[in-house]
Amino acid sequence: MTLLDVTLQIFRYKPGEQPHYDTFTVQVEDTAHVIDAIDKVWAEHDHTLTFRRACHHSSCGSCALRINGVEKLPCIARFSEVWDGHSPLRLDPLRNFPIVSDLVVDVSGFFQRMSASTMTITRDAESTLPLSVDDLAAVVQPKAVELPDNLTRFNRFENCIECGICMSACPTMAVDNKFMGPAGLAAIYRACQKTDDPNEKAHLLALANGEHGVWRCHSAFECTEACPQAVDPAGKIMALRREITANRFKKTRRS
């Protein structure tokens, strides 16, 4: 085990103050994750540093931020992956969200979008409480999922941890505050797949087809690149577009 002296440049903002960067140097193990260094900054240097974290294993999505400009989960980002070994590592809050304080952003808009899909979020390999030891074994070694015959590709939306990284990576979100965004549209797509109710499906597709829906996406694919859980929101947006276009053609042919 080797100890590293890591310098962090952390974005700071408190209401009523000018945003700026503060620099801290902390010592961490070479196998450490970035969240460990942030914890150390808080513990050893500055108790006023505000940041979110909970699970420490990419399950809750609460610690999402930008490391050297790129959206990451610091709980799974090792220094060996994101640090060049000498330059300061710059930490910023997610983009496209109002900044509440330091690295904490207001994610209420994100959850409003998610709830618009009327979809309950459940993840595969996630048991409901109470958790027995047998259940835990199933969680640690999840069984491979067999695709039903009528499915050509596996939809992994359930793996969305609602971290908001896709919304931060999306360049279109920068100027359209009402854009449903990658996560919201991926949730709508999944909800469409799930429902057998034609009225609900029509409502969901109308939502996706709206002014701030799928057509606002301009195919940067950054959401899919940044997603730490391989949800592929851009792929879902394109699939929604195909479905909306196909429905429009069908309606035109019928009329």
């Binding site: 903002y13 209401p15 009523g16 945003p19 050297n68 400009g69 790129v70 983009r95 496209n96 109002p98 900044i99 509440v100 207001d106 360049p171 920068a174 100027v175 301009h218 195919s219 940067a220 694919f221 950054e222 690149e225 851009a234």
Partner: peptide, 29 residues
Amino acid sequence: MANLEYPKVRRAGRWFDVRRRKLGMWAYA
């Protein structure tokens, strides 16, 4: 508590920010 939100013109600059981004972002910019 006042949250920090940058003006729209500044945020539009993100359309062209390709630093450490992937090929799709270059295509977008």
